[in-house]
């Protein structure tokens, strides 16, 4: 079954469109990456799916459910988003417990305490963090909370917008491992936006390269690992990211 289907999706922010005619099918359980440089429109695609960029035309379906242009409560239960900046995406005056319980309250789901404690364990946070405020957490811990928040309603699809680019490499490794484990355990589908091709090689099965609001190439991750893209721009991006040469790792 198709987890995310985009048909001829054109998105704007009130003026000229910034994404043009994007068509994509992402299978259930797949991990798919959108890569490209700033301004290529990759984050805008995620925002449109999440309902944060309502000025679009075309069609968006998630697990067979068509997405409308308005906020949609049912949609929130199947599809959630994790944002780039764990410093900006958590409410500074709410404890971890408040943040995680809020989606439950909105959707009228009971057993707050149990679910919060279970979710903290699932994302690898000790229960002593439950009543802390964001400023009492490190960047990696905050991103764990943001992932936990996205998973509270047990969605099947996660939209990940540069989930590790604000983190140190060692913390990035922890969060990438966590995301990989959660996908396996919960059979999640990921659509991830990133500019880091190394992360794609570790996390994803397929990727699409975007430029100037259009997809220029869709490829299996093997093509990325071997550096055999068809499109000239994809190859350029690959070369700028250091290509296959990981001189340090290779020498060690």
């Amino acid at each position: 079954m198709t987890a995310i289907g985009l048909r001829d999706l054109t998105i704007g922010y009130g003026g000229d469109p910034v994404v043009h005619g994007v068509t994509l099918d992402i299978a259930e359980g797949e991990s798919f990456a959108l890569v490209g440089e700033s301004g290529s429109g990759k984050s805008t695609v995620l925002k449109a799916i999440a309902g944060l960029a309502p000025d679009w035309s075309g069609a968006i379906t998630v697990l067979g459910q068509a997405r409308g242009h308005r906020p949609d409560r049912n949609f929130a239960r199947v599809c959630q988003m994790v944002f780039q900046d764990p410093y900006g995406s958590l409410h500074p005056r709410k404890t971890v417990d408040d943040t995680l319980a809020e989606p439950l309250a909105i959707h009228g789901i009971g057993e707050h305490a149990d679910r919060v404690v279970d979710m903290l364990a699932a994302v690898g946070l000790d229960r002593r963090f439950r009543f802390r405020f964001p400023h009492q957490l490190s960047g990696g811990q905050r991103q764990r909370v943001a992932i936990a928040r996205a998973l509270m309603l047990e969605p099947k699809v996660l939209l990940l917008d540069e989930p590790t680019s604000a983190l140190d490499v060692s913390v990035q490794a922890e969060i990438l491992n966590l995301l990989k484990r959660l996908r396996r355990e919960r059979n999640l589908t990921y659509l991830m936006v990133t500019h880091n091709l190394h992360v794609v090689a570790f996390m994803c099965e397929r990727l699409a390269v975007m430029r100037h609001g259009r997809i220029v190439e869709t490829a299996d991750v093997d093509r990325l690992r071997q550096g055999t893209f068809d499109n000239a721009y994809s190859r350029e991006l690959y070369a700028a990211s250091g290509g296959a040469g990981a001189p340090i790792a290779a020498a060690g």
Binding site: V169, S170, Q172, A173, L176, N177, K180, L197, H198, V199, A201, F202, M203, L224, R225, Q226, G227, Y238, S241, G242, G243, A244, A246, I248, A249, G252
Partner: peptide, 15 residues
Amino acid sequence: LIDAVPRMNETREEL
């Protein structure tokens, strides 16, 4: 630090 960085030809299941 070196090992924690994913590689372009990544095959490790876990970092």
